[in-house]
Amino acid sequence: MLKDARVGGWGARLIGIGLALGFVALILLATGAPPFQAISLLITGAFGSTRKIVDVIATSVPLLLATSGLLITFAAGLWNIGIEGQITLGAIFTVGALRLFVDSGAPPGVAILVGMIAGMIGGGLWAALAGLLKIYGGVNEIFSGLGLNFVATSATIWLIFGPWRRPGVGSMSGTEPLPPEFALPQLPDMRISAWAVLLSLLGIALVYILLRGTYIGLKLKATGRNARASFVLGIPTSRYTLVAFVLCGLLAGLAGAVQVTAVYNRLIPSISSGYGFLGLLVAMLINYQVIWAIPVALFYAALIVGSIQLPIQLRLDSSLAGVLQGALVLFVLIIDGVRQRLRERG
């Protein structure tokens, strides 16, 4: 997708980033906040201590899993906006499976493994639904995805206030926590699970190999570049569309499973934490090139962790991080467009 026009545009990309920072600085100035302090707090706030760096890495896990899934659907030319719901379904399936193991006496390792696999299945099924609606129903994946996101969220709320209610009365704080042994083991004295980090790196590595070096990846990309031509040339494009959705759903479901087993240890109303939509931004910012996924996901995770300091230190709303995350993509897209126009003219 216009790749050659974009490769090597590092100067342009830096200009885009500079403009995004300038835009956020202007907003800060207009609201009477100290722009330099706020932006540096946003970026460096995440690196103040080992504990915060660990937080950044932990935050990047579900984001990276979501991004790697989305790189597959993007390769197939699909806008999988339903990823938020796929993460949510992953979390629901994981909690559901783990609940079966409570008081069963089964080894926790087995329970966690089954829970993670269940989560992947949940995400994969929800994504398959969007894929089937597109292929057999002609429903654009953006709209089915949005609808399914809402359905997934209300399913969570229904479970929290209904069948999985806390003993006594249900509350927005979520279901009763699962037994602590059903959580992924954490590193000593740190709120991070090496297993979760490993899974996210494995996910991105598999996507890299899939898209770079396999026949399936090639056909996926062909479907994405030009579906009609691919179909005429004998690629079953419907099948590859479905494959892309399911693969993305599996990774999104795994992200949901990680949210349960490594972060919350229960089901909460907004279990996907917006990582799906953020993953879409990351995928766009790296121009769908897999190798950049890890550093950019880490940077976006750092902005999230850094923004927690905003209200505490500067009494600013933490949503500023989202403004910067969006502005970066917006201005990089704009600068890309300007470069292409200039090239055409010159």
């Binding site: 907003i27 906006i81 931004l281 500023l320 991080a321 989202g322 995350q325 969006g326 993509v329 917006l330």
Partner: peptide, 15 residues
């Protein structure tokens, strides 16, 4: 572009 703006204007509203 629309999707990015959808997210950015939302956070801008909250901020």
């Amino acid at each position: 572009i629309g999707f990015v703006l959808a997210l950015m204007t939302r956070d801008l509203a909250y901020y």
